[in-house]
Design a protein around this nucleic acid. Structure first.
Lengths: 223, 223
DNA sequence: CCCGCAACAAAAATATATTTTCGTGTAAAA
DNA sequence: TTTTACACGAAAATATATTTTTGTTGCGGG
């Protein structure tokens, strides 16, 4: 293992959460997770405490932990906030990004472009999710405000939870690759307005797609 | 005690941190804290894990926890971000605040106005800090975006850490009470532009005051 | 047939014990 | 005198054990 037990559990649990491997509001039993990861309950509790502070998990006093809920309202609010922050980040990144930044963006985009998007189970492939996250992170990274980046990361993480819900209705009818390319090109050309418009549109479209998927899922549940 | 042991430790530790009762970068020894609060080390670790996710504490693998550092750069970045978020929050709060909101703002302002600002040790009095936090929270509360409020709370908490550093150089030469009144009156009058200007100025002035205090403290340290 | 209460089982919360890691100081060798 | 290796003490990390709390099931009464 790389680091400590707690760290490992935290990271693994986090990617599982972000990959939607647990259902929203599902109970996270401490001893189960402990034996699954072969660590003590203390390590699990510590990891869950951190995830609670991030909002990915909710703690119910004396009643354990659950996966944070999702809702259309939260998704819309989140997307709106993301547009605010991501556009600001992007503006500043374009303004102060150097050659190293450009190179990192190109590299991340290349990895994203060549990574197959579909996984065996019909969702996004884990490799694509990682590449996608890293591309957007690379774009924002040159923003010269640590706090802005921090908030961006928080929002992006929560968005990832919703992302794989979209996969079902997203089959083929949307060209995310094209949006990413457009975004990269505008950023590298230092065309701030075009880049900002591209990322805002990208977030908006993603939101809409996820929202339909969410509504469909709710329908299925009730009917 | 109200809730669980972990919860108690978390809350107490948090207010201590925000009140600047521990020095930045000071080591937070787990067993010391455990005996201080008369709880087990597990509870302390759990509380520290949450505070780490909030950024109030930094975790160093195999080397324990420390109080998060402060710096002029971080303060400036934080203040800039706060201006962005607080103004947006305030706009939306003014737009959608109802009578209950107005009442809460008036009440919070009254409590703030009548609470003595100075403590025996020369810092802000704990009661004033609470009242101050609640006044600003009340103002923002009517903002109809949960995510925006969440980010606002995070930023405000970090700002509080810096706040009491300002007390030394802030003695008498600044009328925070007046700024708060102006802010409240503009908000209640639904004068969005004036309110936004007031809060931006308020944050900016606070930043400047704290910055001088910080620089003075750095001077004292080195000479 | 439904409601309440008691006993039981399961899981969370907490405490204690053990292991591991890190920093420090000391002594021997270059 | 400087450096390096070793050992010791302190603190963190982890595991295990104990206590509390909660949720559930079955039984008796209404």
């Amino acid at each position: 293992m790389s680091g400590s037990a707690t760290q490992t559990v935290y990271e693994q649990l986090r990617v599982s959460l972000l990959a939607g491997r647990y259902l929203p509001e599902a109970k996270l039993k401490i001893s189960e997770l402990g034996s699954a990861f072969s660590v003590s309950t203390g390590a699990v509790r510590e990891a869950l405490a951190r995830l609670t502070a991030e909002g990915l998990v909710t703690a119910m006093p004396q009643r354990g932990f659950r996966v944070a809920p999702v809702s259309v309202a939260d998704l819309r609010d989140l997307a709106e906030m993301r547009i605010e922050i991501e556009t600001k980040c992007l503006r500043r990144a374009i303004a102060s990004g150097d050659l190293a930044w450009e190179a990192a963006v190109v590299a991340a985009h290349h990895r994203l472009a060549v990574t197959p998007i579909a996984a065996a189970d019909g969702g996004f492939s884990p490799a694509w999710i990682v590449a996608h996250g890293e591309f957007h992170a690379a774009l924002a990274q040159a923003c010269d405000s640590a706090w802005m980046l921090r908030v961006r990361d928080l929002l992006f993480a929560h968005n990832e939870r919703y992302l794989d819900l979209a996969r079902k209705t997203d089959r083929g009818n949307r060209d995310a690759a094209r949006e990413h390319r457009e975004l990269m090109e505008a950023a590298l050309a230092r065309d701030t307005d075009r880049a900002v418009a591209a990322i805002a549109a990208h977030i908006g479209k993603t939101r809409d797609t996820i929202e339909s998927a969410l509504r469909r899922a709710e329908m299925d549940e009730l009917g």
